[in-house]
């Protein structure tokens, strides 16, 4: 099958630091894939490069048949890819509903003139976007009636859900989740895993997640890519990666200094 997302020899440097070094990555459509690696390995930088926030210094990125390397983030989002952030980046002083409506920006066909004249098509588009946003909030499991709250006033776990709803509002083919369960308690994590599965199974969205929690990674990934020092050091199914000598070293090697648990320990 043709991959939905394909990175070839992608490199991204910050000054002298090569944060992403010649990485190849292929994501098949309909997959749930994970990107793992020790702290500072370059995982988030890969996401930022894919979504256009950073421009790759070298390499090509193909998404859904087109080359997106060098395109603007909003163009890439419009092409059908959306994301969440490691450190939640909701619009804190907008309401929950407005947050999701901003996510629907590329999907809302209203014009300046429509907004000024309140044309029928404008009102229809607004109403439809609103209904869809409410539906999405319910879909990600947010209790009803929170739509009018300011995003910043909600607890952490719910903010993570809102971020997913906001990304879904862009109607993506591919959703990139950067440590979506960080800071969640075990129950919340369980629910989050179920949600990620439903995104794929029910909505047909391809899911790529960066995770530190090995229980999550091993529990739901169908394919795992391991990054260390900006390089891809292994990839394959969870079983394959778990056995990989370099992966074990990467984690154990760091564990002396950063107390990171080894792969497969599940905690």
């Amino acid at each position: 099958m043709r991959p939905l997302l394909e990175l070839r020899n992608v490199t991204k440097c910050f000054g002298g630091l090569v944060a992403v070094n010649n990485v190849d990555l292929q994501i098949e459509p309909g997959r749930i894939a994970s990107v793992i690696g020790p702290n500072g390995a370059g995982k988030t930088t890969i996401f930022n490069t894919i979504t256009g926030i950073y421009r790759p210094d070298a390499g090509t990125i193909r998404f859904d048949g087109q080359n997106i390397a060098g395109k603007r983030p909003d163009q890439i989002t419009a092409a059908g890819m959306c994301r969440t952030f490691q450190n939640i980046r909701l619009f804190h002083n907008m309401t929950v509903l407005e947050n999701v409506l901003v996510g629907a920006h590329t999907q809302t066909p209203s014009t300046l003139w429509g907004a000024m004249l309140r044309t029928r098509s404008f009102q229809l588009a607004e109403e439809r976007a609103r209904q869809e946003a409410i539906r999405l909030l319910r879909y990600v499991g947010l209790p009803a009636g929170l739509g009018d709250q300011l995003a910043k006033n909600l607890p952490y776990g719910q903010q993570r859900r809102i971020e997913i709803a906001r990304a879904l509002a862009a109607n993506p083919k591919l959703i990139l989740l950067d440590e979506p369960t960080a800071g969640m308690n075990p129950q919340e994590t369980e629910a989050a895993i179920r949600l990620f599965r439903r995104l794929r199974d029910e909505l047909g969205v391809t899911v790529v997640l960066i995770e530190h929690d090995m229980k999550v990674v091993m529990g739901i990934s169908e394919y795992v890519t391991v990054i260390d020092y900006g390089q891809k050091i292994a990839e394959g199914t969870t079983a394959e990666v778990r056995k990989n000598q370099r992966v074990i070293e990467a984690y154990l090697g760091r564990s002396a200094t950063s107390a990171q648990g080894p792969v497969g320990e599940g905690s």
Partner: peptide, 11 residues
């Protein structure tokens, strides 16, 4: 509020 998040949402 956050121009990085905004542009990542397609604005």
């Amino acid at each position: 509020e956050d121009d990085v998040a905004a542009v990542a949402m397609g604005v």
